[in-house]
């Protein structure tokens, strides 16, 4: 039984069940919904979201390394050099959402993130400086580097999330019973005002 396919790989229901079992045998067990309840099935769906996203990241990372070996570069997303490493902080996790934050904490996710090329349009730094002098009262020369770093970081987060979600969309097929928990068509979707 298949829960989802990711590219040419398969995530089996058995794998999902195993991860569920780990959860239900773990420290959170007492607070988890009954697995047969709608809430329990939605928890399972979230788990599948996480597992498929992990698999997408692993595949992208694998392909990146392959392309690196063959001298190719990724044209549709990750690029750039290792000098652009940015630590994943709680604010990033909050801005990017739980599932993505979770994969960002893995070495593969980190490595993909650092390769996002977030070039700023010309004059963006200057325009930001001009609009936000309350925050940047000093001369432009002294403020510009800090502004650029901040804008690049925000843009990288945005682009990374968009890229990863797009790859997830392209690569992942979810089987009935494992739809996105927020999908209003799935039978356990809850409208909670």
């Amino acid at each position: 039984m298949i829960a989802a396919t990711v590219g040419d790989e398969v995530i089996s229901v058995a794998e999902v069940d195993r991860r569920m079992r780990d959860l239900y045998e773990g420290p959170l067990a007492a607070r988890l919904p009954h697995p047969a309840s709608p809430e329990g099935r939605n928890l399972r769906r979230w788990l599948v979201q996480l597992m498929t996203m992990e698999r997408v990241v692993a595949q992208e990372y694998r392909d990146l390394r392959k392309r690196g070996e063959s001298g190719q570069t990724a044209s549709d997303g990750p690029a750039g050099g290792p000098d652009q490493v940015a630590p994943v902080t709680l604010p990033i996790a909050l801005r990017t959402g739980g599932v993505i934050a979770s994969v960002l904490s893995t070495p593969a996710g980190q490595s993909l993130f650092t390769r996002i090329d977030a070039g700023l349009p010309p004059d963006e730094v200057r325009a930001y400086y001009d609009r936000n002098r309350d925050r940047h009262p000093g001369p432009f020369d002294g403020e510009s580097a800090g502004i650029a770093a901040q804008l690049v970081q925000a843009r990288k987060e945005t682009l990374f999330v968009r890229w990863l979600e797009r790859r997830h969309r392209e690569k992942v097929t979810l089987m009935p019973g494992f739809e996105h928990p927020g999908d209003p068509r799935q039978p356990d979707a809850t409208h909670r005002h």
């Binding site: 959170l28 607070r31 325009a127 609009r131 936000n132 925050r135 804008l151």
Partner: peptide
């Protein structure tokens, strides 16, 4: 944990929300 159980990934507390919208306003004229 109970506070996260019914939380969507995109949801934030009030102070964060105001600040996130303010930050976007600073970046996006």
């Amino acid at each position: 944990d109970a506070a996260q159980a019914s939380r969507s990934a995109f949801q934030h507390a009030g102070f964060e929300l105001v600040q996130l919208h303010l930050e976007t306003a600073r970046r996006e004229p």
